[in-house]
Design a protein around this nucleic acid. Sequence first.
DNA 1: ATCTGGCTGCGTACAACGTACACAGGTAAT
DNA 2: ATTACCTGTGTACGTTGTACGCAGCCAGAT
Lengths: 244, 244
Amino acid sequence: MAGQKKDGKAAPDKTLWERLEQPAAPRASLSLERIGAVAVQVADAEGFAAVTMRRLATELGVAPMAAYRHVSGKDDLWALMAERVAAEYRIPDELTEWREVLHAYALLTRELMLRHPWVGELPTALFVLTPGRMAIAERQLAALDGLGLDEDTMMVAFRTVSAYAHGAVSSEVAVREWTQSEGWSSGAETRMGLAPQMTYLMDSGRYPTYRRYGLRSRRKDDATWMFETGLECVLDGIAARLGI
Amino acid sequence: MAGQKKDGKAAPDKTLWERLEQPAAPRASLSLERIGAVAVQVADAEGFAAVTMRRLATELGVAPMAAYRHVSGKDDLWALMAERVAAEYRIPDELTEWREVLHAYALLTRELMLRHPWVGELPTALFVLTPGRMAIAERQLAALDGLGLDEDTMMVAFRTVSAYAHGAVSSEVAVREWTQSEGWSSGAETRMGLAPQMTYLMDSGRYPTYRRYGLRSRRKDDATWMFETGLECVLDGIAARLGI
DNA sequence: ATCTGGCTGCGTACAACGTACACAGGTAAT
DNA sequence: ATTACCTGTGTACGTTGTACGCAGCCAGAT
């Protein structure tokens, strides 16, 4: 009735996370570990869109349908990929001050998302509910613990930094990928390539302030400075408003 | 040589944005306007994935390939969709204080992304480079103008708020869509449905602070409060650090 | 009137995708 | 030796994006 037997697919009774932790089956050439690793590898090398079940299969030296014994489909696959990235977070144990921890978290987020530019294309829900994400949240909440904040406020602090980091980096990555795809390698080159369309828009006179910014800003292309300055604002605000 | 003639596709010489502003061709049953409108409609009603070229065609009462005369493919289509949402931003002219403007922008972002939950699935580059987005940026930069900030700092202020808003709402939407897809309608119901997997993770003892948070937090499910509190932090931080 | 050229929409066609389903080979328990 | 399960295979279907050539139509030139 409830528990289907017979020729089901990827062992249904257990969560993906349980199966992931369990030691790989003895006489199996595939494992969640290996599948996830290859998926990340392909995405890093050729972009998120290159991660297809068939591509994975050839990369794993296996028939197209083989992976389905281990993952339910692309959903599981994405979850594995998200989990692998989450596992790369390494916030040093020495850091104890809440601000240091949140700061390190944000910089790490940027680093990882630049290293794995496809992360922004994953379904966003995967940034909340996997064990790896929960471990990261745990680390941050622990750093905010004992400061006299109530639980709601702690959660706001932690989520605010996450939201900023994720939002900022995903737009940075998008712009970077786009300019790369157009073959522009510097800010100057980009502006050159963009000039024709830009002229049309700018000459409309609709964006005077934006235009002045474009002419006068010097750090426009310094993504690191932009990100870190914004981050300091966010952390200042948390400190000020929450009185910590 | 350069300018291809013959049976090309969607009028190549002009930008999508130029063509969008141009009055619709006289004897054409399709127009960029109409295509964009229908795409948004379908996405609102049935999700981003339901927006396929074929679905659009039937919705427009036209053959599958017809739309390709107007848009180059899905890229253009997504751009049209992004632009339509951008056009829904209405920051009242009465607002002049930078903080009011940025605050209104953030709340509007949340409102629009909740109304069009598929926005988070659009390629992120579309949040930067369309005329509508530039108009929004212009409005914000104008509000930050004349406060004695240099252009770099103005840009940081504006981008920080955008990053927070976008990041916060996209995770809110993701969670909301996911719980809806599981058929849970309240926070309590969600926790109930999640219990089996949650138990596995929580019982591992790896997330003590997280667990305590889960037990004690009262506003956990109040997304509005979470968003607005975080936003106030961000705005406070900008005000403090930038001295405005 | 007739011709001509450019739009606009149509029809066909193809390669790639996700994945359902039935099966085969091997190992382990009986 | 039989059984049952587990893992990987082969085939097949429906859906997608979109390339390509054609057909009708209107405008202006002849």
